[in-house]
Computed example of a mutant assay.
Amino acid sequence: MADRLRQLAEADERRLLDAAFSYPEVGATAGTLPAGYHHMSVSSRIGSGADVFDRARQAILSWQVQLRSGARVASSASTVVSGAVAVVSLGVGPLRLHAPVRIVEVIDDGRQAGFSYGTLPGHPECGEERFVVDRAADDAVTFTVTAFSRPGSLLTRVGGPAARIAQRLMAERYLRALRS
């Protein structure tokens, strides 16, 4: 069972709303991914038809992809909205990693739904991640996770390739969370 979405503490919300992104290429997951970062894109067909698309859309725009994948989310908004801030965290107890993010873009046009978030100071990485479900003309519904990132902390710099593997494994968990 997925954890519930938590309300971000007011002090944390203010601090994150005042924070600048930790990378300059804000919005780049919507186009050409910038040089100088590790790039990742994974996709999975999750079914077909309007019902599948609508369920996936609802899950993405209510943080369920993150929650169902085992992450905790504390957000300034109960649904994904442009400019909202959140802390996505993974792990247990003192080993829990906290990843502050801000919503960069929300997509919701009837054929595509999803969002991008960018890293804020304190996130172990610098970059952006995008979660989009597409309904094609043939009614196939595909979920794609796209990201560009580079180390943003000592832990991820030292982790090197292991950090990239962990990011890829998390993206696979996101895909499985939406298929379930």
Rank of each mutant, 00 (worst) to 15 (best):
V81Y: 08
S43A: 13
G27K: 03
T32I: 13
E25Y: 08
T32L: 06
A35Q: 14
V26L: 13
L61C: 01
S76G: 12
A28S: 14
A71F: 06
V87T: 09
G27M: 02
S82K: 15
S82T: 15
S76Q: 11
S76C: 09
A28L: 06
Q64K: 12
S76F: 06
G70L: 07
I60E: 03
P34N: 12
H38Y: 13
A84R: 06
L67Y: 01
R55Q: 15
A86T: 06
V65H: 01
G49D: 13
A74K: 08
S75P: 02
L33Y: 05
S62A: 10
S48Y: 07
I46G: 11
V87M: 06
V81G: 07
G31F: 02
G70S: 01
A71P: 01
A50I: 15
L67H: 05
V80L: 09
V65I: 09
S89Y: 02
S62N: 14
V52Y: 09
R72V: 11
G49H: 11
V85K: 02
V65E: 03
I60M: 10
H38I: 11
S62P: 01
V87Y: 02
G70C: 03
A77K: 12
T32G: 06
H39A: 05
E25K: 08
Q58W: 08
R55I: 12
A56H: 12
L67P: 05
S62K: 06
S78T: 15
V73G: 01
S62V: 07
